[in-house]
Amino acid sequence: MMSRFRNLVGALVLGAAAALSPAPAKAAGAAIAFPDYRFTFDGLFGTFDRGQLQRGFQVYKEVCAACHAMRQLSYRNLLEIGLTEAQVRNIAAQFEVTDGPNDQGEMFQRPARLSDRFRSPFANEQAARAANNGAYPPDLSVMVKARKDGADYVRALLIGYQDPPAGFALMDGMNYNAYFPGHQIAMPNVLNPGQVEFADGTEATVETMARDVTAFLAWAAEPELEQRRAMGVRIILFLIVLGGLTYAVKRKIWADVKH
């Protein structure tokens, strides 16, 4: 147990050192500066752009979903990004999900409904690893909340695939990414110009696809964001008025007390 603790503290200290030391230690988790992009939902009062979310969902569905699950989301959630019920039903019906057992005691496949969770590309982590050279494509449901400066980081990562600089020892099966901690990432570059065809005529450059799918992931991580901010504005305005009144009453009550 003592040694276990020591290892733990050691790992902690090393990790901390790697994460926070200013210059070197590019190997494990060194902080890499990535571009600060102005998303529509940035700042205290930002909101989502529905068109962007729909394009982002399209990128997720046609590209990312080949490997990455989003198991916290249900198809019905897509109603919130401005798709009509008919559209969402159609999208859901494209996926076969397992249901059951039926009255014969057997599991069966059926097209997904609004109430179903997003179908995961793999049955379990082992299957995902087996299909991806040992790497596990993480679930993207809350990815934007699970990384520091999540949206900027995810967008940077998606546009960060480059040729490694001369002399960089890239391990077998890994890919060079300018913004990934350590620069070696198991995920290959998946976005190429014209990869998807947007219905609204937006040109599918790597930049726009990365930006739009990041916006979609940000919405998926915080679907309550717009309602939360709108409620916050009303509550704080209310508290300012109530605070002013309360302070006036306090002054009145204390008016006769010298202090």
Partner: peptide, 30 residues
């Protein structure tokens, strides 16, 4: 209210939105 409605995760740590994994130690436990 400002914390809750505008910066609800500011005082938290992003790593806590990654499901617990006994096999992976976070780089920086705080």
């Amino acid at each position: 209210a400002f914390l809750v409605f505008f910066i609800p995760n500011y005082l938290g740590h992003p790593d806590n939105y990654i499901p617990a994994n006994p096999l992976v130690t976070p780089a920086h436990i705080v």
